[in-house]
Every structure is written in structure tokens, then in C-alpha cells.
């Protein structure tokens, strides 16, 4: 067989050494959401820029999972799309296995890169073309990258992929609407695995699924990671799910990374005030009747972010410096936090 053989965990880490597979440095993306030119001229409105992502840096080691959590408007989905090349960053970039990803995406070596990085989307109903057979959907990356030729070889491979996500090879002759949400999400995973990628970006893959179906899909994802040495970037707003799947967790707020730590450390000892409030705000199933301390205020309008630290209007520990100066992501005892109060030892 050719290079389509899946690398397993040992081979992967032996080959790579200790360098992280994915290194994102100062990623930023600004969208121009100004009114049309004519309106701007007539109504004398200024250009409106949306800083969806504003300087995000992280590393992911091979075979591990980094989870990005945050609420709506924090930019985590934009980060996902920057990594897979759907958007071009305004600033900064990503290095994949030592290679500059952004340059690759712009050039012809992008094709090679796209074999190694794949994405799984949130909406199981919109992520599969309703007019295509499942066989064609899963075989498309094989066609596109010329991995296999011959209808029989393709069919066999599609059958293998379906089996690896817990579906039957007979399912390839059906249309997406004949499957439930959880099964469709599994088909998406099978499609993403077709090119034997090393890195999977998962944008809220289970948010639209029922709890028991979510459990099935999460279990499959973990099994696949173990068998094939996959690296995941897992985006979610559900901290309980994140706790189950991740090795490292990054918390985002209004386009910035406010805390990044190993999972156990983050959940046991959250440093940043926003992380603490987020953890406190989750409804706990086993703590029946416990009242939570709700977070004050709401996420501000991303078009008009607060000055200095974006969280300061809602933060109980904010001082004058917080409203003036934006905190940098500093390393403190194994954890990275962007908070003046933590830096100054106030909390």
C-alpha cells in the first residue's frame, strides 16, 4: 500500500521527536464589516472593523488534544478556520510540522498540507451535500488528492472508513437524509479520515447532538486518536465535554486567549477571573439544587471591545491598570494567564 497507510501512535511520535506538531503564533483576523461604500460616504460613517481574533498563540503536541473554549463572539471558530486555510490571517500564522502553513496554503504545496489537516464541522445536517451519495461524499478527498484509482479500490476504502466509525459499508449507497444526526457526524469523521490526516480541527462536533449520541461520537473520536496518533484541536463551549476529551485547555474571550493550561490544572486551579466564573456558571448535574453565582453582565459587542483588558467591565478584581493596559499572556508556574491581577499576585 502507498502512503495512505495510517500512522499509529508509536510511529508518529518516534518520527517527530519532541517538537510540537502545530504552532500558532500571534494569530489575528480582522473582518471589515463596514457599511457599503455609498452609505459610508453619504452618512459619514467610519469604517467598522471586527477583530475576531486578536493575537492568539498556542502549541499542540503530536497525539494530544487542545481544547478552545469560550462563549459566542470569542473567536474560537475563526481560529479553527484560520488553521485550515479557510481564512487568511491578518497577522501572525501557523507552523505545521515545521512548515509555514500560510505560505503553503497560498502556493501549490497547499495541496500536500490539506491532506494532513482536516476539519469536522458543527452542523451534521449542513456538512454533507444532500444530493450526493455517502460513497461519493467520503470518496471525494480520495479523488481530489489522487490517492486511489479504480472504482473497486475506492469502494473498499470507503467501506473500511465507514467501519472505522462504527457504520456499515452498506451505508455508502444511501443519502445523508436517511441518517440521524449522530450518524451523519460519523460520516463527516469518516470523510475527514479519508486522506489519513495527522491533525483534525473539530469545530463543536457534538454541540448539535443529543447527550447519548454525543457519548458515542466522543468515544469514537478518542478511540481513533489512540489508534492513529491523531492530534486534535477541539472547539467547544461545553466545559464538561472539554474536560472529557482534552489534554490542554485554552480559554478565549473576545478574540484573545486569557488562559491556557493543562486540563487538570485548569479545572482544579483556574487562575483567570473569567475562567473561574465560567467554571462556576456551569450547571452541575450531580450537585442538585445548588445555586450558582452567576456572571455579571454580558459579553460586550465585539465591534466595540472595552479598552485594556477586554474582561475588565465584568471583573470583580479590575483596577485602573486593567482598563488602560492590555495584559499579555504570561507564563506563571506552568500555566499561561493574561491577567494583571494574577501577575500582581492580587488573586
Amino acid at each position: 500500500m502507498n502512503a495512505a497507510v495510517m500512522p499509529n501512535a508509536e510511529a508518529a511520535s518516534a518520527a517527530a521527536g519532541d517538537a510540537p506538531l502545530v504552532v500558532a503564533h500571534d494569530l489575528a483576523k480582522t473582518f471589515d464589516v463596514s457599511a457599503p461604500w455609498l452609505n459610508r460616504v453619504l452618512e459619514r460613517k467610519p469604517r467598522t472593523l471586527l477583530h475576531a481574533v486578536d493575537g492568539v498563540s498556542f502549541e499542540i503536541e503530536r497525539g494530544k488534544t487542545l481544547a478552545l473554549v469560550g462563549e459566542s463572539g470569542c473567536g474560537k471558530s475563526t481560529v479553527a478556520r484560520l488553521l485550515v486555510g479557510l481564512y487568511e490571517p491578518t497577522r501572525g500564522g501557523m507552523h505545521f510540522d515545521g512548515q509555514d502553513a500560510q505560505a503553503a496554503y497560498r502556493s501549490s504545496s497547499g495541496r500536500q498540507l490539506r491532506r494532513r489537516i482536516q476539519m469536522i464541522f458543527q452542523d451534521p445536517y449542513a456538512s454533507l451535500n444532500p444530493r450526493w451519495l455517502v460513497e461519493d461524499i467520503i470518496a471525494e478527498p480520495l479523488h481530489e488528492h489522487g490517492i486511489l484509482s479504480g472504482k473497486d479500490a475506492m469502494r473498499e476504502r470507503v467501506g473500511e472508513l465507514l467501519r472505522s466509525v462504527g457504520l456499515s459499508p452498506l451505508d455508502m449507497a444511501k443519502y445523508p437524509h436517511q441518517f440521524s444526526g449522530g450518524q451523519r457526524q460519523r460520516i463527516s469523521i469518516a470523510r475527514a479520515l479519508a486522506t489519513a490526516p495527522e491533525f483534525l480541527v473539530c469545530d463543536e462536533p457534538t454541540s448539535a447532538l443529543d447527550v447519548s449520541v454525543q457519548a458515542q461520537v466522543l468515544n469514537i473520536m478518542k478511540d481513533l486518536q489512540r489508534e492513529r496518533g491523531l492530534t486534535y484541536l477541539f472547539i467547544s463551549h461545553n466545559l464538561a465535554v472539554v474536560r472529557h476529551v482534552s489534554d490542554q485547555v485554552g480559554v478565549m474571550y473576545l478574540g484573545r486567549l486569557v488562559e491556557r493550561a493543562d486540563k487538570a490544572e485548569l479545572f482544579a486551579r483556574p487562575r483567570h477571573p473569567y475562567t473561574r466564573m465560567l467554571l462556576d456558571a456551569i450547571p452541575q448535574m450531580h450537585a442538585v439544587g445548588r445555586a450558582r453565582t452567576p456572571v455579571q453582565g454580558e459579553v460586550p459587542n465585539p465591534l466595540n471591545p472595552p479598552s485594556g483588558c477586554a474582561f475588565h467591565p465584568r471583573c470583580p478584581h479590575a483596577n485602573a491598570r486593567c482598563s488602560a493596559e492590555r495584559p499579555a499572556l504570561l507564563q506563571l508556574s506552568g500555566v499561561r494567564v493574561a491577567c494583571h491581577a494574577v501577575e500582581e499576585g492580587r488573586i
Binding site: 440521524s180 449522530g182 450518524q183 447527550v211 447519548s212 449520541v213 454525543q214 457519548a215 458515542q216 466522543l218 468515544n219 478518542k222 466545559l239 464538561a240 465535554v241 474536560r243 472529557h244 479545572f267 467554571l279 456551569i282 452541575q284 448535574m285 450531580h286
Partner: peptide, 23 residues
């Protein structure tokens, strides 16, 4: 019982979530 067991929760660290097979 199966439903409660398949919900990931904040307190415990499990390797696999309990899943109810089928739909």
C-alpha cells in the same frame, strides 16, 4: 440510568463515556 451515565460531568475523569448503543 444510561442517560445519566453518558453525560460527561465536571467531577470525574473517565476514559470512555458510557454509551447507549443504537438510537
Amino acid at each position: 440510568g444510561g442517560l445519566m451515565a453518558s453525560i460527561p460531568d465536571m467531577d470525574s475523569d473517565r476514559e470512555r463515556l458510557h454509551q447507549i448503543d443504537g438510537a
